[in-house]
Structures are given as structure tokens and as C-alpha cells.
């Protein structure tokens, strides 16, 4: 033992030294460092849990937003369809009114044309009668007395009027 250098007092001193090292390192190094690692681990876990919760919430909100957008789109489509339908209806109504008005205007124009035609026909007929009467008066002036002329003319005019339906 002596040759190997083992001496009880030195052996005991080294055991005490190592015991001191174990105690001091536990207090100064292991506990603070492991405590800090544990604390950081917990904080990271909490952070991850919060992130996960936020993500889930964001997903939920995103879903709701998508739903709202879809609803809004659907409503917009319905409104657009209604507007188109109303537009078509209004267009049809306007066209129908315009056609009706045009038909009325045409009808009125036709009526006025017919009335004008009638009036002109009457005038022409009267003029023709007058002309015929003048011609007849000149032709028969030498043959008949004025009274007979008048009777004859009157009789022809009446016949003429009957023949023409006046």
C-alpha cells in the first residue's frame, strides 16, 4: 500500500473533496441549469399549446369567414338575378308600351288618313256633280225650258246620288 502511495488520511481527504464537489455542483450547477431547462421546456410547451389554440381559432374564424363570403356571394347572386329579372321585365314592359303606343299612333294616323280621304272624296264628288250640272245645264239649255231643266237636273242628281249611295 505504501509503495502504491495509498495513505488513509489522503484517501479520506479525497473522499471529502469529492463529496464537497457533488454537493457544490448540485447546488451551483445541476439544479439551476436543469431548473432552467425544465422552465424553458414548460414555456415552450405552453407557447406551442397557445399557438395550437390560436391556429384552431383562426381555422374556425376562417371557416366562418368562408361561410359568410359564400353567403354574401349567394345573396349577391340572388340580388343580381332579381335585378336582371326586373330589368328584363321593365324592358319587356317598355317595349310592349312602345309597341302599343306605336300601334295607337299608326291606328290614329290611319283613321286620320281615312277621314281625310273621305273628306276629299266628298269634295271631289261635289265638284264632279257641280261640273256635271254645269255641263248638263249648258247642253240642255237650248232644248228645255228653265223649269224643265231644273226638274231634269234634280232628277238626275237624285238618281246619281242613289247610284253612288250618298
Amino acid at each position: 500500500m505504501e509503495k502504491l502511495g495509498i495513505e488513509p488520511s489522503l484517501l479520506l481527504a479525497q473522499i471529502v473533496n469529492f463529496a464537497i464537489i457533488v454537493v457544490v455542483l448540485t447546488k451551483l450547477l445541476y439544479k439551476p441549469v436543469l431548473g432552467m431547462l425544465e422552465k424553458r421546456k414548460k414555456e415552450i410547451e405552453e407557447g406551442l399549446a397557445i399557438t395550437e389554440r390560436m391556429r384552431a381559432e383562426a381555422e374556425k374564424l376562417g371557416g366562418r369567414r368562408e361561410k359568410l363570403i359564400a353567403e354574401a356571394r349567394s345573396e349577391a347572386r340572388v340580388i343580381l338575378e332579381d335585378a336582371k329579372k326586373q330589368g328584363h321585365d321593365a324592358e319587356r314592359e317598355i317595349v310592349a308600351n312602345a309597341q302599343k303606343e306605336a300601334a295607337e299612333i299608326i291606328e290614329k294616323a290611319k283613321r286620320e288618313a281615312a277621314a281625310t280621304h273621305e273628306a276629299l272624296s266628298g269634295d271631289i264628288r261635289a265638284e264632279a256633280i257641280n261640273l256635271a250640272a254645269t255641263m248638263a245645264k249648258r247642253l240642255v239649255a237650248g232644248i228645255l225650258s228653265p223649269a224643265d231643266q231644273h226638274k231634269l237636273i234634280a232628277k238626275h242628281l237624285v238618281d246619281l246620288g242613289k247610284a253612288k249611295g250618298v
Binding site: 502511495g5 495513505e7 488520511s9 489522503l10 481527504a13 479525497q14 473533496n17 464537497i20 464537489i21 457544490v24 455542483l25 451551483l28 450547477l29 439551476p32 441549469v33
Partner: peptide, 25 residues
Amino acid sequence: LPISNALITTWLVMGILIILSYLST
């Protein structure tokens, strides 16, 4: 009590470990 050169080195090592532990934490 005998003080060997290995014991002195042990104290030196203890000092280094304790000081580094203190500084790091």
C-alpha cells in the same frame, strides 16, 4: 496531515469546477 501534489491539483480542479459553475449560473 500530509498534503500531496495530487491533493493540491484536486483543489485546483475543484476551484476550476466551482468557479465555472458559478460563472455559468
